[in-house]
Amino acid sequence: MKRKKHTAGDEDAAVDMTPMLDIVFIMLIFFIVTTTFSSEKGLEPNRPPENQPENPNPSKSLSIRIDETGQILMAGRIVDIRRVVANAQTYLANNDTDSAAIQAHEDTEHGIVVEVMDQVKLAGITKVSVLVKED
């Protein structure tokens, strides 16, 4: 039995990587092109400028309290969520202001706070602050 001798041509055999690199780059381009970037939606905070001088005559803002059970208190009275707009408009008719402060208990549902904010903005108040009361 005769053994086959190895020739120099067998040592130079190599795998051609060019087609594999082409496929990798094509896949990379495909994933870059098909990726969608989504912008998150949410509430924009309205922050005052850093070096704002103190206002000597602060305006009287509408004060709304929401307790842990979801009851809404305006001017010391319990108000239904559907009557917030009417009460806010009455307050605006009697007072010259464009701001409201909503003080919510930390256990209050977020949906109620957002609904009150929407109702106050419908009444015509542009500046709304939200405060969280911790026990």
Results as ranks from 00 to 15, higher is better:
M1T: 14
M1Q: 10
R3L: 04
K5L: 11
K5N: 07
K5S: 07
H6I: 00
T7Y: 11
A13F: 04
D16M: 04
M17L: 13
M17W: 11
P19A: 04
P19G: 04
D22G: 02
I23C: 07
I26E: 13
M27G: 14
L28I: 15
L28S: 14
I29E: 11
F31I: 15
I32R: 05
I32F: 10
T35L: 13
F37P: 05
S38L: 11
S39A: 13
S39F: 14
S39H: 10
K41T: 15
G42Q: 11
E44D: 12
P45W: 06
P45I: 07
P45N: 08
P49L: 12
P49R: 04
Q52A: 02
P53Y: 10
N55D: 15
N55Q: 09
S61V: 04
L62S: 02
L62A: 03
I66W: 06
G70M: 11
Q71L: 01
A75T: 10
I78K: 11
V79T: 07
R83M: 05
R83F: 11
V85P: 03
A88I: 07
Q89A: 04
Y91T: 08
D96C: 08
T97D: 12
A100E: 08
I102L: 08
H105V: 10
E106F: 10
E106W: 01
T108D: 08
G111E: 11
V113T: 03
E115M: 03
V116H: 05
V116K: 01
M117F: 07
M117V: 00
M117A: 10
Q119H: 09
V120W: 00
A123N: 05
G124P: 05
T126G: 13
K127P: 06
K127S: 15
V130G: 00
L131A: 10
E134A: 05
E134T: 01
D135N: 10
D135T: 08
D135C: 09
